[in-house]
Lab assay of single mutants.
Amino acid sequence: TRVETATETAWISLVTALHLVLGLSAVLGLLLLRWQFPAHYRRLRHALW
C-alpha cells in the first residue's frame, strides 16, 4: 500500500505540473497572438462576444 500511495502522489504531481505547463503555454500563446495580431484579435473577440 505504501508503494501504491507513492505512485499515486507521483501521478498527481505529474498531472498538476502538466496542467500548469499547459495553462501557462495557453496564456503565453494568447498574449503572443494579441501582441502580434491586434486587429485580428479584436475582430476575433468581437465575433466571440
Rank of each mutant, 00 (worst) to 15 (best):
A17G: 12
A47D: 05
W49L: 04
V15Y: 04
S13Y: 15
A47P: 03
T16D: 00
A26L: 14
R34V: 10
R42C: 07
L44A: 09
L31T: 12
V21E: 02
S25G: 12
Q36H: 06
T9C: 06
T1I: 11
L28K: 03
W35E: 02
P38D: 05
T7P: 13
W49R: 02
A10R: 12
L44M: 10
V15K: 07
P38N: 07
L33P: 02
R34G: 09
R42I: 03
L14R: 06
L24T: 02
A26F: 10
H19R: 01
V27C: 10
L31W: 12
L24S: 07
V15Q: 08
A6D: 07
L44Q: 02
L28A: 12
A6H: 04
S13M: 14
L28N: 04
Y41H: 04
V3H: 00
L20D: 03
W11Y: 10
P38E: 05
G29Q: 00
H40N: 08
L28P: 03
W49G: 02
T5C: 00
I12Q: 08
T9I: 12
Q36F: 07
H40G: 10
T9Q: 10
L22Q: 03
V3T: 01
Q36C: 11
L28C: 13
H40E: 05
L44Y: 05
E4K: 08
R42Q: 13
Y41E: 05
A47Q: 06
L33T: 03
H46F: 06
L33Y: 12
R43Y: 05
L22Y: 01
S13F: 15
F37Y: 10
R42K: 13
L14A: 09
R2D: 13
V3Q: 01
E4V: 12
V3I: 13
E4W: 09
V15L: 11
W49V: 03
P38A: 12
P38R: 12
L28F: 11
L20M: 09
L24R: 05
G23I: 15
S25D: 01
V15E: 03
L48C: 14
H19M: 15
H46L: 07
L14D: 03
L32D: 03
V15A: 06
L30Q: 02
H46N: 14
R42G: 09
L28T: 09
L30T: 07
L14T: 11
I12S: 09
Y41T: 07
R43G: 05
L30S: 05
R42M: 07
A26R: 00
A17D: 04
L33M: 08
R45Q: 07
W11S: 06
T7Y: 07
L14V: 10
L28S: 09
L14K: 05
A17T: 08
T1M: 13
A39P: 05
L48F: 04
A17R: 03
L31V: 13
G23Y: 01
R2N: 07
L20S: 07
L18E: 00
L33I: 10
L20R: 02
A47R: 14
V21D: 05
A6S: 14
L32G: 04
A39F: 07
L24K: 01
Q36M: 13
R42H: 12
H40D: 04
A47I: 08
F37P: 00
W35V: 14
F37R: 04
Y41D: 03
F37W: 10
Q36L: 07
A10S: 10
Y41I: 11
E4C: 04
G23P: 09
A6W: 05
P38M: 13
